[in-house]
């Protein structure tokens, strides 16, 4: 654990160091080029700002209105029927929509069942192998004005669903119930 945390402390500084040193060796005007990139970055942020506002507003409305709770309520019995832990059903759905809401559910599971319980471990694995699909798709496609997203959503949803089941199965196999 300590090694991993140390490594993660090193990733960002070492990446930056490596790139800057390499740029120096290649005789890049590092500071000027950095500023050029930073300017592009700020433009990007301004470009995606409206998309973000629309997205976050919609996600907050869904959460506030209780639609998300209702959908997970419907999902629960269905999950139980196929032998999927019902306590994890909300997390698997919420994770697709909002990362911060999913983190809230994750820490709830930790608090109620313990981080080292079957549910705690599975929830941790689920969080690491899934992604906020709705957010990513909207941001990337809308940034270039693509409306017909074709098979992207089905593929992403399938990958996430397989990930959720794989998490349950892997934790059961490796750690037992």
């Amino acid at each position: 654990m300590r090694i991993l945390l140390t490594v993660s402390d090193f990733i960002i500084p070492v990446t930056v160091l490596g790139i800057v040193v390499f740029g120096c060796l290649q005789r890049v005007d590092i500071y000027e080029i950095f500023l050029e990139g930073a300017k592009d970055g700020l433009k990007t942020v301004v470009d995606i700002l409206p998309t973000l506002i629309g997205l976050i507003m919609a996600v907050e409305v869904v959460r506030a209105g209780g639609l998300l709770d209702m959908m997970t309520g419907i999902l629960r019995p269905a999950a139980e029927k196929i032998g999927f832990p019902a306590e994890l059903a909300p997390l698997s759905l919420v994770r697709l929509v909002s990362s911060s809401a999913a983190t809230g559910l994750l820490t709830d599971i930790f608090a109620n069942f313990g981080a080292d319980s079957f549910l705690g471990r599975t929830a941790s694995v689920m969080m690491s192998c899934t992604e906020t699909v709705f957010y990513t798709m909207s941001l990337y496609f809308l940034s270039v004005g693509v409306r017909k997203t074709r098979y992207t959503l089905p593929c992403a949803l399938l990958a996430n669903m397989v990930g959720v089941f794989a998490a349950v199965w892997l934790v059961q196999t490796v750690f037992g119930n």
């Binding site: 790139i19 740029g23 990139g37 930073a38 970055g41 700020l42 997205l55």
Partner: peptide, 29 residues
Amino acid sequence: GGKSAMELVFTMAGVVAVWSGILKIAERG
């Protein structure tokens, strides 16, 4: 919703700008 999006943008703008700058150096190099 709009307010939290603006707050998010304020925190992320700086980070994204820094990474875009670093990325540009990596690209030129």
